[in-house]
Design a protein around this nucleic acid. Structure first.
Lengths: 298, 298
DNA sequence: TCCATTCTCTGACTCTAGTCAGGCAATAAG
DNA sequence: CTTATTGCCTGACTAGAGTCAGAGAATGGA
């Protein structure tokens, strides 16, 4: 694996070179596997409808514009999909694959698999391992790079979703369970300006993580509710939220941030230690905390 | 970096997942950077013509079919390219960018660069380094996987090209220079059936490496002229050619292959040692050899 | 009940990216 | 000098992938 130092300019060049090479290879792959007898648009739609699920045409339209009506007619004429009114709202229509549709989709699938195999085939086992590992890495980091972070009201449905997931997960992880009524910070107002703030991370629009910052007038800033959705772990998101919370605190004139955590949250504890936090004596009565940390901001 | 063992099926799945993710990201990149006011085909052509060179329309046509005439007219009408007859053969026409064309191409370039930057921007420095390193790895291995190897007559122009490059390179590398007349194997017939064989590696149709196998009736098989073009090094090609030569020898009933090499060729010597070759006493009078190796085939 | 909105479809149109056959001019081969 | 070939262009045609405006049916709200 290449570990040379690169300047930012060289890194941008590497990304562009990668885009060119990969667009060529993957593009060819993609086109060929979708490019049977069926035109691209139809094949893509067939693929998206998927094997088992039934989709509202409404939601498919959001990705394909009005043109899907025609695509659907074409697939319907060939007996690949069945379009039926939604049982509840008969304006909405639903699509699902017929048996013939599933057969044809399976062919696309086999084709895609063959072509993926054809990339691996000329390589020796060691190279295959390296290639797939590097692909996983690229995928992970590209995914990480499209995650956006925004400030959000802690009562927003997406924020509530994250906070609920957070407490649900703690309930499973802590030996003692987790009773939201016993913990400190019962009040979402503490994570809303001017008493604090709340950050939410999104991936393709879906909420995948959050972190809150309490800004009491008479005490150091305090980080609360730092949580990353299980599907979004391994992307370095927690570190990113943490550092954004710190820099927001710094911008607001705070010199110190602190936080508490439970011993069951090992990854979090490691994160704090490797992010410059040092363990300090308990600064609150949080019943679920085992470790208390603080960090002096630069 | 992920170094878990994967089964072949999991590897194929990883490649397909990669294709999906990357097609999405890179596709968006690609489309957006080419998708200014100008339609895709025109932008692509503008890009391919390049900043400085003058191209024969003939050679561009090979990639774009007859349709380029129209694309060229469109670009010409906008004053982006100049089309002129070739000074030598006035049937052939040449294209080059005008100043306006160079300006517009620079905008495409800037756009592409911005978008590559936007992938890196959300990442922290350690992640950027990891991403670009993984991208380089993927690029390298994907390139390796599209290299094809074929049996070719050693008098074929592409074979001759490789063999010339090989001797030219030895001339530079050896302290003593390299005089093709003094070395053994003056006869290309020795690398042609039934007395031997010759393998050529191609990348996108271009010859990028070769290797010969001598099959004397009264002696072990012997590997000769193993060479990889400088632009194609680091792809594991030499090892691939070597192992193909071995398996060809094996298929022809040979139990032992041997070869000689010069001490200046350190990478080659390392390759032989790590491929199961053991050093043996000189088995010929090759004046340019310092090491003699042999391997018993399984 | 009536009216506005939502969801979907269709006809008419457009643009891009081709293919194909034919034609013209320059050059190469005999 | 004639003929064949090469390279390029153009007109006529096509397919795919859309856009846009309008219409019709179902639903929700006042």
């Amino acid at each position: 694996m290449d570990t040379e130092r690169r300047t930012p300019g060289q890194q941008v060049e590497q990304v562009r070179r990668f885009n060119r090479t990969v667009a060529e290879h993957v593009g060819v792959l993609h086109d060929q596997y979708l490019g049977g007898a069926r035109p691209y648009g139809q094949a893509r739609l067939l693929w998206e409808i998927g094997d088992t699920e039934t989709h509202d045409v409404r939601s498919v339209r959001a990705r394909h514009s009005g043109y899907i009506s025609r695509l659907l007619r074409a697939l319907e004429a060939d007996g690949l999909v069945a379009v039926e009114p939604h049982p509840r709202d008969r304006r909405v229509r639903t699509v699902r694959l017929t048996d013939a549709g599933r057969t044809e989709r399976a062919q696309l699938d086999a084709r895609s698999q063959d072509l993926a195999g054809s990339l691996l085939h000329p390589l020796d086992p060691a190279q295959r391992t390296r290639l797939t590992a590097a692909m996983a890495e690229v995928e992970r980091l590209l995914t990480a790079s499209v995650v956006s972070v925004e400030t959000l009201d802690p009562d927003h449905p997406d924020a509530v979703h994250c906070l609920r997931s957070y407490t649900a997960e703690l309930g499973q992880l802590f030996d003692s369970g987790f009773d939201p009524d016993r913990t400190l910070l019962p009040d979402p107002g503490e994570l809303r300006a001017p008493r604090g703030l709340f950050l939410l991370a999104r991936l393709h629009g879906e909420p995948v993580g959050c972190g809150g910052l309490k800004l009491p007038a008479d005490a150091p800033a305090e980080i609360k509710r730092l949580w990353i959705s299980p599907q979004a772990r391994g992307l370095g998101l927690a570190r990113r939220l943490l550092s954004q919370l710190e820099s927001r605190a710094n911008d607001l004139g705070r010199k110190v941030v602190r936080l508490d955590t439970n011993r069951a949250l090992e990854a979090a504890t490691r994160l704090y230690r490797t992010s410059g936090y040092t363990e300090v004596p308990a600064f609150n009565d949080e019943p679920y905390a085992h470790h208390w940390f603080e960090k002096h901001l630069a």
